[in-house]
Write a protein that binds this DNA or RNA. Structure first.
Lengths: 218, 218
DNA sequence: TTCCATTAAAGAAAAATTTCTCTAATGATT
DNA sequence: AATCATTAGAGAAATTTTTCTTTAATGGAA
């Protein structure tokens, strides 16, 4: 079988997943005024192996000093830059329902390099409303607005059964990356980046552990 | 180094992550009236290897029929059950800010076995409000309400720097599992289940691919 | 009925990721 | 100044996860 999204020997995804936590930790230390942080200290905080930390950080440009560690300020800068949180990308969100409007409210996203410029829906009761200064338009206006604004990312927060339709629409109007919050798996051309984020998967993982513990206590 | 959360030879996490998508697919087929589905068909939908599907499903009780596949209805039932979506668990949410209130609005969660019974915050402007019929209390009332209600899960949606404080509080009042939406890593006793869900990690993965593509076009 | 194509399932092989081991460097202590 | 303890970093080993291979079963076509 042909692999659909071949990794071009990039940074391992688990590494990228850990980095925002390194960043959060470093930001905390910066606030506290700590100047240096060792890989051991970061590892303790993360509950992982110290060598994992140095390996992860070796993908960035930062270098640590023996017996001292990494400079906290530099770590914050390097990680923010590396994770793409310093570049602003414009995004459209489709599906201004419960989860969608939630994301619109989350001004945190704008601190991490994501600028949602408009939202779309088919539900007439939400169209015309504004969440956090982001207006909700009818999906039919998607085409016109795509051309006006420089939008690279599409966020899908519609019901799972409509995910593919929305994805097709996004691809048709030139979107480069899709952040899919539905459990549905969408089909798109090879060059489109897709990130599936299913909150319910995380829930399933918790339940699995929780309900297992109930059965076999050991 | 001692592994903090030793897996007791359970189901691989990547498997559990894929299952909600299998479920969504099966539910779609059920709506369309399809009776059987082959591992090949599921694999096509998921863009993964068919043997991955059979291996994943082998962790459940379902067995497929040669040359026919899995019964769709049974698949839906078995997966819902397996993922813990049929058992209702009560949860508290702490931090009714942008992301927190978003989750409160997401009635989807209740369809997946999670019942958020109350929310807490320190911000007086949100206290007393109701989102989706869930009331926001002052964090000081956490103790009293924990005892009244049978709450097994705590959801943390406060700013990263307050995550540990909230986690300590949850542990103190008998919560079994914590769903942590902050990039901060919290320290809890061994027997407490922690699931970290950092939206910004997913964002970082997209940016990584997106910005890399901009540089090295190949 | 007989054969064929398709399928689930089990086990082996490969790939990816994490952990372990070792080395060199250097700030702190004596 | 000399020694020691701690650290980053590189590479090897182990583990985990995915993919490949093989086998057995069986519904449908000839």
């Amino acid at each position: 079988m042909v692999q659909s999204s071949k990794k071009i020997q990039g940074v391992p995804e688990p590494t990228i997943r850990r980095m925002p936590s390194y960043l959060a930790f470093a930001e905390g230390l910066l606030r506290k005024g700590q100047q240096f942080v060792s890989s051991t200290q970061i590892a303790n905080y993360m509950n992982i192996d110290p060598t994992q930390v140095t390996k992860d950080l070796s993908y960035t440009t930062i270098v640590g000093k023996t017996r001292v560690g990494y400079e906290v300020k530099a770590l914050v800068d390097v990680l923010s830059e590396f994770l793409g949180f310093t570049i602003m990308d414009n995004a459209f969100l489709v599906g201004a329902g419960s989860l969608g409007s939630a994301l619109l409210h989350d001004s945190g996203l704008s601190h991490f390099g994501l600028n949602i410029v408009a939202a779309f829906d088919v539900n007439s009761s939400t169209i015309g409303k504004k969440f956090n200064d982001i207006e909700v338009f009818h999906i039919d206006q998607f085409r016109d607005l795509s051309q006006e604004m420089n939008v690279v990312m599409g966020i899908i927060t519609v019901p799972a059964e409509n995910a593919q339709t929305v994805a097709d629409l996004m691809v048709a109007w030139g979107i480069k990356a899709i952040w899919n919050f539905t459990p549905a798996r969408i089909k798109v051309p090879e060059d489109i980046i897709v990130q599936n984020t299913t909150l319910y998967s995380n829930l399933a993982i918790i339940f699995n552990k929780l309900h297992n513990d109930r059965k076999e206590v050991l």
